[in-house]
Amino acid sequence: MALYSQPPMSYTQEPTTAPVEHRFNPYSDNGGSILAIAGKDFSVIAGDTRQSEGYSIQTRYARKVWQLNDKAVLATNGFAADGTNFVKRVKQRLEWYEHAHHKPMGLKSIARMIQTMLYGKRFFPYYVYNILGGIEEDGTGAVYSFDPVGSYEREACRGAGAAQSLIQPFLDNQIYFKNQQPEAGSEKFVPGNLPLSTVLSLVVDSFTSATERHIEVGDGLEIYVVMQKGRSADDLLDEKKLAPGLKVEELGALGEGEGERTFLVRQSLKRD
């Protein structure tokens, strides 16, 4: 009896694991990283240009950073299709705003609008981390960071994406001066006052380092610099003051002109 009590396992035994439900997964992760740092009278928003899925590089140039108007730049990271479509919708809303009010939407209003747009899809979210940078109504540089469902806050800096865990601690140390002690008798550190040249170096270092240690980061770097109205751009346009390998281009005004100025700084990153 005992001999035949156990029929061949594979035919009759109930599967020990529950049946795998096969369902269409509408999301993907396309890697890459973004970061933004606010200065006193400028804001810097950057992202790499690699787009990948798993171990495959889909393209070495896909943008993640988008100029919205003369005072705002938005970086998106996560599921690329959601990112591009979200930016498209944001731009659409901004155009209707300009039709209605004959002026571009202000930075903090854009930030609030992005929150409502993200939360509007709370139950089928945009799988995207957003960082908004630009110039506030009072002329100060600002950075707003969001989670995929719309929680947001204004910060001095923020990194997001595949290499967030590599970049953010570095930024905490260099921008927020965490774990640094001012020399005895010298002034207290105040975040958000670094000169543009220092900030640019930090951005470049963040991405070259992330490229070394993270497979999803690399190929190219795009850094957008938004400057307060009337601020001199000499520190950016003087080649001698700029790190080698950086190429600067001024993006012409989109609105009335003679307001904030936006520059695009490019650099190549390692492709391996």
Binding site: G252, A253, L254, G255, E256, G257, E258
Partner: peptide, 10 residues
């Protein structure tokens, strides 16, 4: 007045 209209510039 091109300084006051990027639309004109474009």
């Amino acid at each position: 007045d091109l300084n006051h209209s990027s639309a004109a510039k474009r």
